[in-house]
Simulated assay, not measured.
Amino acid sequence: MERLGGDGVLGTVDADRSDPAYRAWLKDAVRKVQADANRSADTHLLRYPLPEQWGIDLYLKDESTHPTGSLKHRLARSLFLYGLCNGWIRPDRPVIEASSGSTAVSEAYFAQLIGVPFIAVMPRTTSREKTRLIEFHGGRCHLVEDPRTVYEVSAALAADSGGHYMDQFTYAERATDWRGNNNIAESIYTQLRMERYPEPAWIVATAGTGGTSATIARYVRYMQLDTRVCVADPENSCFFEGWTTGDPGASSDHGSRIEGIGRPRMEPSFVPGAIDRMMKVPDAASVAAVRALERAIGRKAGGSTGTGLWSALKIVSEMVGEGRTGSVVSLICDAGDRYLDKYYSDRWLAEQGLDIEPYSAAIDVLLATGALPD
């Protein structure tokens, strides 16, 4: 029987979804995905050292400690539960995803967990370590030259194989329960409960799908909190332009150098109306910030962490200048060992024409004086 499924993919579907064998498989698959969350401890909230006299605390939610090493583990778990409960993910049929790497690593993990094939459609520039991790978890990588084609290629592969195109860029904001249920926002506020400023002045996120910023911003409003949400956007991304101009058709002709964030189009899961502020962050500043993070706390992180940290430090400098106290929270999105050949490589920086020294010096000045140079 051929029909257009709920995920918009034309393929063969079972005529009877109440088939006992399928329902038994579905129950077991959902149990396995939920069990993963049940046995995983929450991620840590780390402090970034700032001068005590400022009266400002800067925290980093370390999402790199998830089983698959990134913030995207939460998203992949939600997407798999969403797809399973909608009847879109079926036994023995592949799950296909368009990704810049980290989501695909996490989805490969969950696909292997429930025993379905997985194909990741990614730009050819994706870090080698990410492709290795996808394959380690049993997935297959389908690389494309033009990052803007990942959507169409993924949909075509799903149609040809009778599989399910997960489409994180459409479903990220709706698959996650933003009201609570141990989402990232609820976790942040729970962990801040005993701190001196338990309700942060700002939470800084970055946007790939936009799902994390939408979850945090919606939760803040739902809980009637005064926290503001800022989204930091890298070069070669259209989110900042689309947010500032109100243009849902904003686009970029180039892919982002900061893997995992920044998109060439306004993604359906990016919710501009929920966001209080956006900052455009130079890629060199992102790399400078992530290297400053290693000097400060001894941890390597990915470039998207640096994008958010640069914006968080800028907010801290504004608070110092205005004489305000409080807390600011940003995210460690993934670990830096995936990017040793990029953000931690001086050769890569030279090839990209990125000079991080002015931004590194600016961070040093900020930490010494509280002021971020223009």
Rank of each mutant, 00 (worst) to 15 (best):
V320G: 08
I203H: 04
C238K: 13
W178R: 12
I114G: 08
L293D: 07
R148E: 11
M223D: 08
R228I: 03
G210P: 00
T325H: 07
F270Y: 14
S345G: 06
T245F: 11
D160P: 07
D334E: 04
I356W: 06
C230V: 08
I261M: 04
L84R: 14
M1H: 00
L26T: 09
P282H: 06
S304T: 05
L225W: 06
S78L: 01
L75Y: 09
W178L: 07
A350S: 15
R324G: 04
H73T: 04
V365H: 12
G298C: 09
L113I: 02
S317Y: 05
R277K: 10
V33K: 15
L113F: 02
G69L: 09
A289Y: 06
E318N: 03
S330H: 06
I275P: 07
R77E: 15
P358A: 05
G255S: 12
G321S: 09
T227P: 09
G273Y: 03
G302C: 09
S70I: 05
I188W: 06
V204E: 12
S286Q: 06
I275R: 10
M278N: 07
D337C: 01
W202I: 03
T149C: 09
E357A: 15
S40G: 02
D28H: 13
R263G: 05
P268F: 10
E199G: 02
